[in-house]
Design a protein around this nucleic acid. Sequence first.
DNA 1: CGGTTGATGTCACTTGGTGTCATGAGCGTA
DNA 2: TACGCTCATGACACCAAGTGACATCAACCG
Lengths: 187, 187
Amino acid sequence: MPRWQPDAPGRLQQAALTLYAERGFDSTTVAEIAEHAGLTKRTFFRHFADKREVLFSGSEALEELFVTEIGAADESAGPLDAAAAALDAVASAFEERRELAARRQQIIAANPELQERELIKLASLAGAVADALRRRGVGDPAAMLAAETTITVFRVAFERWVDPANRKDLRRLTRESLHELRAITAH
Amino acid sequence: MPRWQPDAPGRLQQAALTLYAERGFDSTTVAEIAEHAGLTKRTFFRHFADKREVLFSGSEALEELFVTEIGAADESAGPLDAAAAALDAVASAFEERRELAARRQQIIAANPELQERELIKLASLAGAVADALRRRGVGDPAAMLAAETTITVFRVAFERWVDPANRKDLRRLTRESLHELRAITAH
DNA sequence: CGGTTGATGTCACTTGGTGTCATGAGCGTA
DNA sequence: TACGCTCATGACACCAAGTGACATCAACCG
């Protein structure tokens, strides 16, 4: 018999998600989350850097997916085309988890501190995308601009995707957003 | 004779800027900042919502400038052209304060919490720009995309401007960034 | 002159976050 | 079987951010 219940981080995430949704982020203490998971406050902070981070554990994987896909894109593709290919792959990866994504997004939308954390994750993502583009030979500031633009497109599409009224899939929405962006920036 | 020294917020800002630069953001306590300004911790929090906010007091004015200029742009101008006109005005407004801007930016660059705050301020700015564009009759998601793109262009230009090696003025850098973006997104 | 206002101080309190040491089941090894 | 090591967790003390409640007192106003 194991000394402790398995998957402490997962239990903490689950408890946090539930409590943040129920009572709001501010009105939930770390001690409460830990208690719900059968652990202590101290253990929470061994698994997550802070109270916000518990909602953002998937971000490294997302970053990796973006980078991999951009690296794998056709050599002849321009920066935005490579990024567009990556967006397709990323959109597919999210498609099954719309329910969870929407709940998470609702919690984040209700709290500025969480929005800050979300924004810095996206900025880090943009940085990784820019690096991946530079590895394809794209120079600066083109790499930065293309990366930021890609993340903007993704964010706009994601926002529309989690909207309860929406019926389109994420892939389609990213493609539409990118198309729209190209229309705006065209002379 | 006034009961208190004048301009408490200004003194707190000045003290914070100095101490954050000297010892770093993390190693500076609010009590120390307040003491330097001849005040108490409690008074600091009456003027600024939190320890970070003291570095971001100019953001409402910047937002207002963007919005005003976009509203004043030629009626026939497209969304990105209106935004470009605003960028010119904003760039001029910054031009004299490069020294201060660079010091401030260095402090922010050294600390993730401050970067988070910076990012949410820029996001709020983008939101205001999007609203201003909608008031010009631009629809969605075009308004959002154009706004986010404008802020990205501004940020990229600003980053290059505060670089000690840079010799160009901010207005020129914003124009170059925008031009580059158009080149990237062109089919 | 007395009352009001408003910026500040004082103090107690909650909570996020950290450093340090103790605990004890699982596991390998003699 | 016994010994000792590992490592996730608990226990505890502590600091700093941030807040609520109340006190203070110069300036201002009728």
